[in-house]
């Protein structure tokens, strides 16, 4: 029997992997991919809650709320990926690098 906890643990694991990658990776493309991992970990949580939580007075649409949010996140993530890849391209053209350590104009 697969319970809500299983989903949440899976989500936490994926989120942590994504977070680690986002913080530790030097390649901006890899960082972007890790961020996508974190989005999707959140998506898993949302749909899991939607599946397991019943409709109540405070939440009349029940499962639909979580699913709608997940769809929103997928749409936003697609847009974000497009914008981010455009920024990465622009950065690459000026600095000939996609390494986060080379993007340090704000360093004191």
């Amino acid at each position: 029997m697969i319970t809500l906890q299983h989903f949440l643990v899976l989500s936490a694991v994926i989120f942590s992997i994504g977070l680690y990658g986002a913080l530790a990776k030097r390649n901006v493309v890899a960082v972007l991919m890790c961020i996508e991992l974190m989005f999707n970990a959140v998506n898993i949580t949302l749909v899991a809650f939607a599946r397991y939580l019943p409709a109540t007075a405070g939440n009349p649409y029940g499962p639909l709320t979580g699913q709608v949010f997940a769809l929103f996140i997928i749409a936003v993530a697609a847009a974000e990926a497009a914008v981010a890849l455009a920024i990465i391209l622009a950065v690459y053209r000026t600095r000939r690098s996609v390494n986060v350590e080379d993007v340090n104009l704000l360093q004191s």
């Binding site: 977070l19 340090n104 004191s108």
Partner: peptide
Amino acid sequence: VTRTATGQLPNYALAVF
């Protein structure tokens, strides 16, 4: 305090997290 301003994005992201 100046030392925290590394210019390294991951450091800032870690701080945010």
